[in-house]
Design a protein around this nucleic acid. Structure first.
Lengths: 209, 209
DNA sequence: ATTTAAAGTTAACGATTGATAACTTTTGCC
DNA sequence: GGCAAAAGTTATCAATCGTTAACTTTAAAT
């Protein structure tokens, strides 16, 4: 299928279909939630019939999990890099900017992540709990990498983390708020630049203890 | 029913039941989402049988709307007061603190509000769009009341609004993040005080142009 | 070109859901 | 206390949903 055979793995028909399914699922899960999205509408968006989804995924839950995996891995990777290379105070802003860039490419992920976070009392808790551990607790370097003063008491560190997390992800979920005051899209480069500027100002304010 | 007959309206059995239904619905809608919550589980939590809900609400949608109404009205009221009485720069921090206090009493509302905001492409858009108008666009006084520089370009104003909104509401949705670093509840008074302190620092940073 | 495996479709199933109708019980008013 | 209205229950319905099985078509491997 692919002419550059050695540098790119061959993509079978099935793999391409699975990608289409996951792309459709990502957008629909993000906008309508897990329960609010049926496999029939995902299938329709992916141009197959609904039971066909079972050729590629074991269950709806498996599809959801795969979508989350695909979307969160780059974030975990960015976090890991910063944790490993945290060498200066400028690092933390760069991390959140990197995550902002990632989310700008996949704005649905912000919604999916927040949904998964807010699923309380469900059997999803194990899934997202695992992700939280991987995202936020890779040792004390994580705190520094995230731009949080490590001499702070844990409660205050946690609240700083929450604020920063919500600033970054909440931005991508707020098009409707944006529409009340301005025109355009939050994923426009100009707006992304504005958001980054605002984040830098906040980061500076929080860093000055 | 109520012995202080003149100062408090009488609460019929039905009204008390409707309250129970709405209390149950508020918590369940918040944690499981609209589609993920069935009328049967709401009814069970309210100690009635499921079709009994139709004695008090026309539909599931009507119940949802009533829950939103009940929870958002105090916020609109707080907003209106600040808009009317916006007299000093200290006003804007007080507004967000007031909203923080309101949400601390009803943390489910933060989740419900965000859910409604993120419902894209649904017939809910009219509902939340109305609420957004009422929350955020009560004239130019609103911008000042919210602590946003009115000489800023609209795009930047909108992004500041988004940031502030997500700081306030996102806090209440982030217990799972908090749990990765600390113990306790986000609604504990100590943590609320920490959050307010953090918000004041951010507000000051954003105000310094 | 042939064969096998993969991928896709159609039909159907059991479970769940929001809503309705009929009936029963409780409440509130006089 | 009696009566009407309100509130609540039981039973049922049509629709939707995730899933499975059987069948068909296409893709991939040789």
């Amino acid at each position: 299928m692919d002419s550059s055979a050695d540098s790119t793995p061959k993509k079978t028909k099935g793999k391409l279909t699975a990608e289409r399914i996951m792309n459709a699922a990502e957008v629909l899960f993000a906008s309508k939630g897990y329960k609010g999205t049926s496999l029939r509408e995902i299938a329709q968006a992916a141009h197959i019939q609904q039971p066909g989804i079972y050729k590629h995924f074991d269950s709806k839950r498996d599809l959801y999990s795969s979508v989350l995996d695909r979307g969160l891995s780059p974030m975990i990777e960015a976090m890991r890099e910063r944790t490993t290379n945290s060498d200066s105070a400028s690092g933390y802003a760069a991390l959140w900017e990197k995550i902002t860039d990632l989310l700008a490419e996949h704005p649905s992920m912000a919604s999916l992540f927040q949904q998964a976070l807010h699923a309380g009392g469900d059997d999803d808790n194990l899934l997202i709990h695992d992700w939280l551990q991987r995202l936020f607790t890779q040792g004390q370097n994580t705190i520094t990498a995230l731009g949080i003063d490590e001499n702070m008491e844990p409660e205050e560190q946690a609240i700083h983390l929450i604020a920063t997390f919500n600033l970054v992800t909440g931005y991508f979920l707020s098009q409707q708020i944006y529409d009340t005051l301005a025109t355009g899209k939050l994923t426009d480069p100009d707006n992304i630049a504005r958001q980054k500027k605002l984040m830098r100002r906040i980061a500076t304010a929080l860093q000055d203890t």
